[in-house]
Design a protein around this nucleic acid. Structure first.
Length: 307
DNA sequence: ACCGAACGACGTCAAATCTG
DNA sequence: CAGATTTGACGTCGTTCGGT
C-alpha cells in the first residue's frame, strides 16, 4: 500500500543533503534587492533575480516574511497511516484505499491560508467572484436560478426548487453573437416568462424579477461530449407536475450536473494550486542559489582578511 | 498508415469537510 | 446536525507522439 503525502508548504524544505533549513529571522542576511518581487497583473508576479534574470510567475505563494529563507505559514502534513494489510485482504482494494486515505484541507483553504497576508497570492475565492462578476449583473440575485443541460440537449432551469424546461432548440444558439429568446415555463412558477441571453457559450437567465444569475454551460471546445445519461425524456419534462419517480430523476440529474461543475472547478483549482507550488519552488531555488553565492563571497572575503 | 503507450480532461461515486 | 460543497479515486474517451 502507499502512503499519501500531501503537498507540504511547511517551510522545512530540505536541500539535497537532507539538511533542514530552519526558519529563523536572525539568519536572514540576504540583500533584499537581489530578489525583487514586483506586483504585476493580478495573479502574476515578476521576480527579478540577482543576476538580472526576470522571472514571471503566477501567484507565487509567499509569506509576509522579511527573510528570504523564512518559511511561510505552516501547512500540516497529512500522511495517511499505512495499515499493514494482511496478504489475504485483497478484496475491495478500492474501498480500503478510500478508507485509508485521509484528506487534506481543500485547495481553497490551503491557498487562502497561505495568502492570507500576502497580496501576491490571489485567493481562489476572489478569483471565482471575479469570474462571476463578468457575467452577473449588478442586480443582486435574490432568486437563485440554475441552468443545466441534459443529455438530450435540453436546458433545465432550476429556480426556487422548481424545474423549468427551456424549450427552444439551443443548439442553434451556440453560434457566435449574443442572442436573446423568451420562453415560457413548463411549471407554473409565477414568472410568466423568462429571458435567456446566450453569448459565447454562456447563458444568462433573467426572470421577471430581474435577477440574473449566470452559469457557464459549456466551453466552446468541450462540446459536452460526455453528457450524462438521462432517464427523463424531453416529453416527460414538458408534462405538468412530474410524478414522484421523475422528480427523483430530475433531482439526481441536477445533483450530477452540479457535481460535474464542481469537479471541473476542483480540477481547475488543483492545477492552480500545483502551479503555485511549482512557482514557489522556482523562487525558493533561486533564493537558495543567491544565498549560497553570497555565502561563498563572504567566505572568500573572510579568508583573504585572515591571511 | 497503423498501433500502442502516455497524457489530459471529463463524469461519476463516495467520503470528507464545510456551513448555516 | 442536515444539507451543501469539495475532492480523491476510478473508468472512459480523445489526442499526441514515437516506434514499426
Amino acid at each position: 500500500m502507499d502512503a499519501s503525502v500531501s503537498p507540504q508548504l511547511d517551510g522545512s524544505l530540505k536541500d539535497s543533503d537532507g539538511e533542514e533549513n530552519h526558519s529563523d529571522d536572525s539568519s536572514s542576511s540576504a540583500d533584499p534587492a537581489q530578489v525583487s518581487v514586483e506586483g504585476g497583473s493580478p495573479g502574476v508576479t515578476v521576480v527579478q533575480l540577482s543576476d538580472g534574470q526576470m522571472l514571471q510567475v503566477h501567484g507565487v505563494i509567499q509569506a509576509p516574511q522579511t527573510s528570504v529563507i523564512q518559511a511561510p505559514s505552516i501547512q500540516t502534513v497529512q500522511i495517511a497511516s499505512v495499515a499493514e494489510l494482511e496478504p489475504d485482504q485483497s478484496e475491495a482494494d478500492t474501498q480500503k484505499r478510500r478508507v485509508l486515505l485521509s484528506r487534506r484541507p481543500s485547495y481553497r483553504k490551503i491557498l487562502n491560508e497561505l495568502s492570507s497576508d500576502s497580496p501576491a497570492v490571489a485567493k481562489i475565492e476572489e478569483e471565482k467572484m471575479e469570474e462571476e462578476a463578468v457575467v452577473v449583473s449588478a442586480a443582486e440575485a435574490t432568486v437563485p436560478t440554475s441552468i443545466y443541460q441534459t443529455s438530450a440537449g435540453q436546458y433545465i432551469a432550476i429556480s426556487q426548487g422548481r424545474a423549468i424546461q427551456l424549450n427552444p432548440g439551443v443548439e442553434a444558439l451556440q453560434g457566435g453573437g449574443a442572442q436573446t429568446l423568451t420562453v415560457g415555463s413548463s411549471y407554473p412558477t409565477g414568472d410568466a416568462q423568462q429571458q435567456i441571453f446566450i453569448q459565447g457559450g454562456q447563458m444568462l437567465l433573467q426572470a421577471a424579477t430581474g435577477d440574473i444569475p449566470a452559469y457557464q454551460l459549456r466551453s466552446p471546445n468541450s462540446g459536452l461530449a460526455h453528457s450524462i445519461m438521462m432517464a427523463a425524456s424531453p416529453d416527460n419534462m414538458q408534462s405538468p407536475p412530474p410524478p414522484h419517480t421523475e422528480a427523483i430523476t430530475l433531482k439526481r440529474e441536477v445533483r450530477l450536473m452540479k457535481n460535474r461543475e464542481a469537479a471541473r472547478e476542483c480540477r481547475r483549482k488543483k492545477k492552480e494550486y500545483v502551479k503555485c507550488l511549482e512557482n514557489r519552488v522556482a523562487v525558493l531555488e533561486n533564493q537558495n542559489k543567491t544565498l549560497i553565492e553570497e555565502l561563498k563571497a563572504l567566505k572568500d572575503i573572510y579568508c583573504h582578511k585572515a591571511e
